[in-house]
């Protein structure tokens, strides 16, 4: 016997109605366009950034008139000439690039064993401890962490006080290049571990067991099995760390004592100290260009790592 339609629960009828409305608004023939529609927010966001880049590009071609503090009406390459010829900018760019490379190498070196232990340990307590230790720094902002290092590494800080107990006079541990690199490594470590962990999780533990059963020692297993298979994670982590380090502002400003500027600090100075937006825009564009070239080279040489997991699985 056929159940009368009126016996349908109200919610079913509401859902039927909604489906009919959805079908009218988005016919089945439109289904192929759905993925593109879902891309729209990202496209709009990136589009806005690109528009901003055009605006910055326009500003970079104008010079500051110090009689009126207005940007010139005419286009000129003077700012680019300055950036490419003045020693100061070469020094700062070199320091930033070298710093980014060193920080990336050291961070990956420290992050790898951490991530490996976190993924492979059989102790749930240890894994939880490592996870908590990993996420805790995220609750403390970069600036606060940098100020924390001022307290720990200062002339009257904990480290110097401890050294004083064994007769070592206070030494300057802050306000130099190593201090900036140290602060950056400490800041980047959680990012790198987070990027590495999924790649290491994807390596079946049985592969390491198989290598061991065939007589490979820990070092050979690491070199021929774990390291090659973790390459996507290393590349992904490396890309994140190198780009964040290259563009960092706070750590060089706070731990560098004013003498270890990175490019971001130089950009800030132009926008906010000398009011030279043209030069600031030029430096910004060149930073974007250098960062993009570095990332592009890594993509070209090593692929996109975990940033292209599907590719990595092939």
């Amino acid at each position: 016997m056929r159940t009368p339609r009126a016996a349908y629960p109200l919610t079913w009828r509401v859902m039927d109605g909604l489906e009919r409305i959805a079908a009218a608004l988005w016919p089945a023939s439109f289904q192929r366009g759905l993925p593109y529609l879902m891309l729209m927010p990202a496209v709009v966001l990136v589009g806005l950034l690109v528009l901003g880049l055009f605006q910055i590009g326009d500003t970079s071609l104008r010079t500051l008139d110090t009689n009126t503090f207005l940007m010139s009406e005419d286009y000129t390459l003077a700012n680019y000439r300055r950036v490419l010829t003045e020693n100061f900018f070469a020094t700062v760019a070199g320091r930033s690039l070298m710093g980014a490379v060193i920080v990336t190498a050291v961070t990956l070196l420290f992050a790898f064993p951490y991530a490996y232990l976190m993924v492979r340990t059989s102790s749930p307590a240890l894994r939880k401890f490592l996870l908590v230790a990993l996420f805790l720094p995220f609750f403390i902002g970069q600036v606060v962490r940098a100020y924390g290092w001022l307290i720990i590494l200062g002339n009257q800080g904990m480290v110097n006080e401890a050294l004083g107990l064994v007769g070592v006079p206070p030494m300057r541990l802050l306000y130099n290049y190593p201090a900036v690199l140290f602060g950056l490594v400490q800041y980047m470590l959680p990012f790198a571990v987070l990027m590495l962990a999924p790649a290491l999780t994807a390596i079946p533990g049985e592969l390491e067991a198989a290598a061991a059963s065939l007589g490979a020692g820990w070092v050979r297993t690491f070199r021929h099995v774990v390291l090659p298979l973790s390459r996507p994670g290393l590349i992904g982590a490396g890309l994140v760390v190198v780009t964040l380090s290259l563009t960092d502002f706070a750590i060089p400003a706070i731990l560098g004592g004013g003498t270890q500027d990175f490019i971001a600090n130089a950009i800030y100075d132009q926008f906010f100290r000398t009011s030279d937006q043209g030069l600031g825009a030029t430096l910004s564009l060149m930073l974007v260009a250098v960062g993009s070239i570095v990332v592009g080279l890594v993509f070209l040489l090593f692929g996109a790592g975990t940033l292209a997991m599907a590719e990595a699985r092939k």
Partner: peptide, 18 residues
Amino acid sequence: QVENESQWFAKFKEIMQG
């Protein structure tokens, strides 16, 4: 000062950051 600040600033930075 304002007309020359940018150059003075750049020169000071060049010396100190070198």
